[in-house]
Amino acid sequence: MYKIMSRETLVPNNHLFKIEAPAVARKACAGQFVVIMIDDKGERIPLTIADWDREEGSITIVFMEVGVTTRKLAQLKTGDSIANFIGPLGEPSHIEKFGTVVCVGGGVGVAPIFPIARALKEAGNKIISIIGTRSKDLLFWEDRVREVSDSLTVTTDDGSYGRKALVTEPLKELLEGAEKIDRVVAIGPAIMMKFCAKTTEPFAVPTTVSLNPIMVDGTGMCGCCRVEVGGETKFTCVDGPEFDGHLVDWDLLFARQRIYIDEEKHAMECACGEVASHG
């Protein structure tokens, strides 16, 4: 069992959990993920690592309530435990001194972009960050990202905070600007990553994205998370999760993310029914 050392609701529907997992914390690197299972009837779901503390033996995850598992997870309290916590999985982010790197985080993707920006900063890069959400009330970790960035632009879709824009607009302006951009890292909803990659493609700036398909084991055993990159089939869990955004078959990713949409709906209805009958 893995104890929840602390928890916090960052913004509505987005929660931060600090989990006691010393073996995972010892090895965790930016860009990697964990697979969790709440109880013995639970589903195995992947969550990107948002931070870690090797001394304390903790891993921080940030997740959005989207399905049955994340909803159940959100109901747990400090001191509760989850049954399984496996990691660190996947390849760490490629960290080296590239020069100037633009880090783009969208929605809950702001959490995993943070340790990558920090590692790139520590490697001597100039970090220009862009983080965006639908509206002000969904924005978190602006301060943390700012701390590891040389400059930061915040966007909201509705203009309730920062600049009223999608993240791709300031990204495009940077690419068109005088400063040479050596690399872009984008993490967020698949659609956002796709458009970030589309934005950088004409400028031929290498663009890393972190893909989030459905997984089961997370260790290369099942192939549920297969994606096509440059025409080749890859397993996101062991070959990724980070790939060259210009080579990803985005439509395939979108389609495969929707495989269980009917089942998820059914499960949510059942779960809600349970709550209603107990309440």
């Binding site: 009837k41 589903e43 049955v68 598992t69 084991d217 055993m221 099942c222 495989i259 089942e263 499960a267």
Partner: peptide, 28 residues
């Protein structure tokens, strides 16, 4: 890679290990 095409490992893991045949009592 079309939806609905599984490796046997995934199909059997979901069914046996994760007990998907008992969905939604089991979450997978």
């Amino acid at each position: 890679n079309f939806n609905g095409i599984y490796s046997a490992n995934e199909f059997l893991t979901r069914t046996n290990l994760m007990k998907a045949y008992l969905f939604p009592e089991y979450d997978t």
